[in-house]
Amino acid sequence: MRLTFLIPLVVFVLMVVLLGVGLTLNPREVPSPFIGKPAPAFSVPQLHAPDEALTSEVFRGQVSLLNVWASWCVSCRQEHPLLVELAKTDRVPIYGLNYKDERNAALEWLARLGNPYRSSAFDADGRIGIDWGVYGVPETFVIDRKGIIRHKFTGPLTREAIDDILLPLVQQLKGEPG
């Protein structure tokens, strides 16, 4: 009987523990439902070659990245030098999804800051972005040899994210049978 009076305290302590754990989490990050699923199909004009299409077939047979970017996006600029650097090492091919952008602005942006992308899909109306569940540019998807999405970074990549998560994952995926 005495113990029933301690129930509120016990419940409260549990709550404090959960709130404490909650403090360490980022409430804005939404996990992608695509992890472990095939990359959504698309076929759209390339940024540099409006007459040629870039299709999601490109992800088959190699481990690759898809980076969603736009010239109007401030934090894309922040991660851009890292991407350029990564592209130079040639450790993993990077494809771009130019999201809701203007072609000239995007081309000018790449010309000025360097182009880390093998090729960029030009997603003028953002339809592909929606199909890929993009909600905050920049986003970076890691895709394995079978064309399956294995990881997603939301927000600008950092050096730590690349060195500690992205590259080891790429290495591991390269070791998997295709």
Partner: peptide
Amino acid sequence: ILVLLGVVIGGSLMLYGLRAP
């Protein structure tokens, strides 16, 4: 604030648990 919460609420609930019976 979490610590403050723990002290104020936890303390009063503890007191409650001890005295209310």
